[in-house]
Nucleic acid binder design. Sequence first.
DNA 1: TAAAAAAGTCCGGTAATAGTGGAATAGATT
DNA 2: AATCTATTCCACTATTACCGGACTTTTTTA
Lengths: 250, 250
Amino acid sequence: MDSSGGRRLQTTETSLAIIDAVNEMGEARMSELADRLDLSTSTIHVHLKTLLDQEYLVKRGEQYRLGMKLFHLGEGARTRNEWYEVARRKTHELADSCGEEVTFAVEEYGRAITLFNVVANVPSKGFQVGRYYYLHNSAVGKAILAALPETRVNEILDRWGLPEETEYTITDRETLLEDIERTSERGYSVNDQEAVEGLRSVGVPVTAPHGGVLGALDISGPLYRLPPNEELASMLQDVVDELESELGVQ
Amino acid sequence: MDSSGGRRLQTTETSLAIIDAVNEMGEARMSELADRLDLSTSTIHVHLKTLLDQEYLVKRGEQYRLGMKLFHLGEGARTRNEWYEVARRKTHELADSCGEEVTFAVEEYGRAITLFNVVANVPSKGFQVGRYYYLHNSAVGKAILAALPETRVNEILDRWGLPEETEYTITDRETLLEDIERTSERGYSVNDQEAVEGLRSVGVPVTAPHGGVLGALDISGPLYRLPPNEELASMLQDVVDELESELGVQ
DNA sequence: TAAAAAAGTCCGGTAATAGTGGAATAGATT
DNA sequence: AATCTATTCCACTATTACCGGACTTTTTTA
């Protein structure tokens, strides 16, 4: 939670910064990385050698890319949770029965990350999976915020702010806190074009066996054809109830 | 390819070793990691702080786990390839039409890693995805070997050996090279219980637009009900042909 | 409940090494 | 062929990663 105090390892930080840069750039040459991270080519070179050695990167021609070792570890991170299999199955069931796009995301370090994104059992184009969302302007996000203690909510808003993504994004903290208040009263969150224009979504938080928030499930779709919020909320709530009972939430 | 020569960064190597250890252990406490990697607790502690800071790890209670940042990067590694979307769609199509388990894997650093694993469009339990396979005892693997130049094949066998996993595993290099020879002649590989007893699979390599091997596609299932090899091979070959032509392989 | 044990955190000094500049090599471009 | 650019390697020095040990917190045991 608090990143304060204590020393960090600069070398590791640099190596990981290179991974981040390669991820953002898709592919990169050594000199591009040297420029971007403002390091000498010789320094970058040793880092790259080390990362290639560990299979975190691959070199194709002169271009460096992310290695599949990261995919291997990433799948480990996703699947090595008690709730993985149940959450996956329930997400698919809901997508099947509602026919719209369903997303399951968990909170980590103040953002939501998509673990599943399915449209009627066709694991959609899949480019959403692994994506980060802010909590203030997504249905999963606001559902999660509504389930967190207010101190934590404020920590998160301090850290990430309330970036404006459409003209409907709530950028004022008081307004957001009221929205979250309403969300926790009625049990579901609503995102009305706050992330993408023309897109509405409704989300419900999922409680973890230990008591905290595990994540949230949401249904999203175009404004003009999505059923009313209450209807979506009740479908979500049913699935979440089943999910939680399978996980042994009391 | 050659990991020889040049210096490496010990600090980065240690940090990544910690990630590996956490991955293998599922979850780990600091002292367990200190024991396992034979480092002082103070050293481990700085590494862990740094990795938490970068969101590569999460701390739940006293246990450290892999963070979803790794999942984020892993999805980046998987999706940021020109062929990702086509390969995904073709894998699903084949699974649909053949009704058996279909796997798409790519080669990296001498092993195959599963990118897709589908049973009739139900993305199966999914625990196979992200898994590494040896090339010498899997259908995807032998298909890939058959498409690689012999020098490379020998490099790979030198590095990984031919570990025995069942009594049917080919553990002799000469025998394997003959098998690969036959594979490249007939255009498909056969894995007859070499990885798991009772399980057979047939694989076909996929050529990349640049000319090399991209990966391979295979169909696998229990001995007693899987159609004959030739039949599976021709289904696979049809899909691979379509895949390659969509990718613009000449 | 208290005491002991274990685990985790922090700090200062020193030996190890990460980072730099610059030289050498390899590749691309004209 | 010659120039330019990108990558790799090498040797030196300042930096910093690592350890020992003290301190704090948590867990176990009596």
